[in-house]
């Protein structure tokens, strides 16, 4: 079955991203497809390449990356909402350049796109599951 997941909370602040990750991992291990994970609200912080948890803690960002969720062409399907991301200082190289900001912090396993990607995920998946607070 084809699943889509929405994550609304940042890592470490709330369990939502951990639960969503465990759900996605179990789905993949049981032969299902995660067609997209959409990060919204503070959930965009799950994509920060600047994340440095202490060694004895789980690395939420790397956990997401380890799932290797991509489309048929190899594009990441860990999608960060552009409006929510820019509000919260989560930038890929192109947004940083466009806004004349030095540095960028979007982990390469993720991509930034619009809210339409969430609606599209709702349309194209068999099930959309929301993890939030």
């Amino acid at each position: 079955m084809k699943f889509a997941i929405q994550v609304n909370e940042g890592p470490y602040q709330h369990q939502a991203s951990d639960t969503a990750f465990q759900f996605a991992k179990a789905a993949i291990e049981n032969g299902h497809e995660i067609m997209r994970v959409f990060f919204y609200h503070d959930g965009v912080n799950n994509a920060s390449s600047f994340t440095l948890p202490p060694q004895d803690d789980r690395h939420v960002v790397n956990n997401w990356a380890s799932l290797d969720i991509k489309d048929a062409d190899g594009n990441p399907e860990l999608v960060v909402c552009v409006a929510a991301a820019l509000r919260r200082g989560m930038l890929d190289e192109s947004e940083a350049t466009k806004n004349s900001i030095e540095g960028n912090n979007l982990h390469p396993a993720f991509r930034i796109s619009g809210l339409g990607q969430l609606i599209e995920a709702g349309i194209q998946s068999d099930r959309l599951v929301v993890f939030g607070d």
Binding site: M1, F3, F23, K25, A26, A27, E29, N30, H32, R127
Partner: peptide
């Protein structure tokens, strides 16, 4: 467990 969660959604 989480696999059971997935099954419930299915």
């Amino acid at each position: 467990d989480y696999a059971g969660f997935v099954d419930l959604v299915v």
